[in-house]
């Protein structure tokens, strides 16, 4: 299971890199989203999967699954959300100001008459 998940995470990371290298802003944003998903899976797997119960204290449970990666990843999820929201707004603003979402066309000094 762990090996499968690591490979899936690797595929997701590769796909996200492909998306981030493309020209369209929206694809870049989706790419970063997938990148963070891939890393989420990767990190979670490092603590081992399905090794014990839900990490909530219970006298009847002998072994818990690792709570530490979960706590870290909670932070990751939330921060990723903030990042995605911010990037989306940048994309909107860029399109509104410059009339394009092609990053190759964004380079250079804005026109004087704008």
């Amino acid at each position: 299971m762990e090996i499968l998940i690591i490979i899936v995470a690797g595929i997701m990371i590769g796909a996200s890199v492909y998306l981030m290298l493309s020209k369209s802003l929206i694809r870049i944003i989706i790419g970063t989203g997938i990148l963070s998903h891939g890393i989420l899976l990767m990190l979670l797997t490092m603590g081992g999967l399905k090794r014990g119960g839900i990490p909530v204290l219970d006298d009847s449970v002998q072994q818990y699954s690792d709570p530490l990666p979960q706590a870290m990843l909670l932070t990751v999820i939330v921060i990723t959300f903030a990042l995605t929201a911010y990037m989306l707004v940048i994309a909107i603003r860029v399109y509104r100001e410059l009339g394009t979402d092609n990053v190759e066309e964004l380079k250079g000094v804005p026109r004087e008459d704008d």
């Binding site: 995470a9 690797g10 595929i11 990371i13 590769g14 891939g38 797997t45 490092m46």
Partner: peptide
């Protein structure tokens, strides 16, 4: 495609090695 494949493979290998 080449770059992203390379990154993906390296990431997988690192993951496996770290695990």
């Amino acid at each position: 495609l080449m770059i992203s494949a390379a990154v993906g493979i390296i990431a997988t290998v690192i993951g496996l090695a770290a695990y």
